[in-house]
Structures are given as C-alpha cells and as structure tokens.
Write a protein that binds this DNA or RNA. Sequence first.
RNA 1: GUGGGUAUAGCUCAAGGGCAGAGCCUCCGGUCGUGACCCGGGAGAUGCCGGUUCGACUCCGGCUGCUCACCCCA
Length: 431
Amino acid sequence: MRRSPHPDMKTIKAIRGMNDISPADVSYWQLFEDTARSVLDAYGYQEMRPPVVERTELFKRSVGEGTDIVEKEMYTFEDRSGDSLTLRPECTASCVRAAVEHGWLRGGGVRIWHIGPMFRYERPQKGRYRQFHQLDVEALGFPGPEVDAELILISARLWKRLALKNIRLQINSLGAREAQVAYRQLLVDYFGSHRDVLDEDSLRRLGSNPLRILDSKNPNMQALIADAPAPVDHLDAQSAEDFEALKSALNDSGVDFEVNKRLVRGLDYYTGTVFEWVSDELGAQNAVCGGGRYDNLIEEIGGPSTPATGFALGIERLVELLKVQQIDTGATSPHAYLVAVGDRAGQLALPLAERVRDESPGLRLIVDAGEGSFKAKLKRADRSNARFALIMGDAEAEAGTVGVKDLRSSDPQTTVAQAEVGGFFKKHVLN
RNA sequence: GUGGGUAUAGCUCAAGGGCAGAGCCUCCGGUCGUGACCCGGGAGAUGCCGGUUCGACUCCGGCUGCUCACCCCA
C-alpha cells in the first residue's frame, strides 16, 4: 500500500467551501433526512426534485436584483448556446417555477418539499459554505396564517423528533407589498435624517435595501435602530390580523416564540409573516431555519396570483447542532465479519456469503477473503465494530461451516464455536 | 470583498538559527486458548516561492490553503 503521493504529483483537493461528507458523518445526515421525510409525510407534504441549474433570470426576478445573493454570490455562467444559467442559490424559486410550469397550482394548492445542494459564492466560515444543503418546504396556494403556523409546527416537530434543544423561534411580520412600500419610505426618511450616525454599509443600504439596516450589529447605531420605526408597527390591516392569528395558533399549540421586530430577511420576495429558528451553539451563523410568506412571488415570476409560504433549513448547521448536542444517530455497524484464510476458503467465501444474504435480508456481513495474514484480518474484524467474527479456513470451507467468535464479549477467551452459517444468523443475529 | 489566527507524519501535538521527537494509526514479528492487552522491530513530516545567514523547518517578505470574525444568510 502506497503511503505517500508520488513526489511529482500535485494532489487535487476539493473546491474551496465545498465539503466531502465523510462516512463518519453520514449517519447524522441520514438521521436528519429520515426524520424529515417521516415528519413531512405526516403533514401530507410531497417530495419534489427540481434541477440544480436554472436560468439566471429566475433568481433575479425572485430573490431580487438588489440583494447580496444576486449581486455578488451567484455561480453564474453561460452555457454553450450563450444562455445565462445559474447554480441555484436557494430553491424556493425553482419550486415555484415548477409549480407554475406544470400547473400544480390548479388543484387548489400544493404542499411540497425538497432536499438538495445550493450554491453561493461567499467566503466560507463555520456554518457557511459555498455548496451547502437545505431542506426546503413550501406550501403554495394557501392564504391563511394557519399554513404559516403549520410550517412552524413542522419545524418544531423536527426538533422534537431529533431531540434537539435550545433552538429559539423568532417571528415578525413585514406586511403586504403596499404597506412595505409605505413603511420603507418611512424608514428611509428616518435614517435619512440621521445620516451622521450611519456607517458606510448602512449609507449604501439606505438606497438599496434600507430594511437591512435594522439588523446591523454596529454598536454605534444600536440606539438609532432601537428608535427606528418597525415594520410590525406599520402593517396593513390584513397582515396585522394574520400576525395575531399566527401568534394565537402558536400559543394554542404550545410553541414558544419571541417577536423580533428587527427580524428582516435577505430575500426580496417575503411579505407578511417571517420567522427564524436560531441557536446560540453555532457561532456567527446562528440561523438554522428561516422562512415566511411570499404572496407576490408566484405572480412576479409570471404565474397566477397565488399566496404562498415556506421555509428553508440549513442541513450543515443542523448536523452541527446534532454533533454539539451529542445526539445519538444509531449509526450502524456490521453484524458480522467473515474472515477467510486459505485458497479454498478464499474461493468459497463469496458464494457462501451470498447464500447467507439470500436467506437473511437485512443482514450486514463484510467479507474479508483477500490476501493478508490471519492476524491482520482478525484485527480488521475487531475494528469493524462487528459483533461476530466468522472464521473460515480451508477445512471449514469444505464442510460449509465457520468458527464463530463473539468480538464484543468481555471474556477475552470466548470459545470458538463451529456453526453452520445460515443457521447461526437465524439463531443469534436476526431474532 | 475586508480583517485576525494558523500551517511540523494519515491524526493529535512537541522541539528549536546547527542530526525534527512523541502518542495514536498503520505494517512485520513475538507472546497467546486465533482479536484486544503486553513485548520487539519497521514505515511515515516541516504547504509553495523568494530574502537574510557559513547554515533556515525556525527569522523576514510574498503566495496558497485552512480557520474564525465582519458582511450575508440556511
């Protein structure tokens, strides 16, 4: 086995900000995915799988031209025919595009979800990567606050099923478009009359995205921000009513929340209710899950005027929480490890293992029939975390039996028993 | 895009302007009631380029990577 790379050979490494998920970590991902699938199924949501690449135009129209995502974070390129394409930076736009394109909205609304990779060209740091994964849940075609509550309850149930703790829910309402426009002007006037206090970033945003000034962390601006008008105090009547209904629904369902008047979101399409689940255990990137209502988006990308709401959950961040909180993933190890030593045993090991797998579906059996010393193979068997080592020399091979050693036994001198293989599994492993 | 930290073996860490060490891992052998434990042995490293110097892994500069923070968001 070669230990070092060829001296002249440059090793090829993964792209910056794009990570391999190792076998050691994958059990966390599977735990999350299995749980999400099961919870979403319980609410009648159906999986869909849009492509990873879309026309650049889709994101410009949905996420918003003035947002950081569109302005400087997209992986955009021309294909060979000169069309501008983009690796999706989020997938609400794709879900909505698909629903419009295929007429899914004609039945009175759809509940859909998707898990997959998203791409943003950002400087990587803890909880922020250039390829990252989201669970996206969207309810298209439902107007009331009940559906917003449903989405929050889905996420709350996810935390519960995963046994995650210390995730706080923050909610806010941004109001419908007309109210947003009026409020935005109010805000521009307010900050405009205090230009001397604003920092460089905020001055820039005053023209482009004044809402974002509200969640600036600059200590010099905190007093100014605290006194600034908040969107939730300037809602249209319908949004205000819906927000109250949402709060009641959460209270009635026993979900704790806090109203964060300064919670705004970085995508332009949100209207009305927005929410975020945050954790203190993730460093600077503390939002695990965020979403809200986007009643204008479907129309804005060319579909029928349709209310909609949804959320996205960052899987890397969630997996980080699972690790920090030491959640047991029930990671699987092999049931048995078949050690074959000798020419005849080596020949018969694979067919024998096949026979056993035929008889015992669900069995995990690793076969070690290649070259190598008996000692090395037994050592590997031990390291594999298998419960049993099945030991087969030429004599056993001929007889169709194996020696069996209980590797997890505390007694180092566990008796080596002879056993017929299939019968052994039926008796010890699978009942 | 901006700033801080950092870069020694597969991993975790030492050392230090003059032969780069250890533990884990790994490989071979011994012990042995076939693993582990224990004993003996082997393999394996200073990110890249330049400067200072008799001499640089060490000091200096640049680059690159990683990392954290700003920013942004999941």
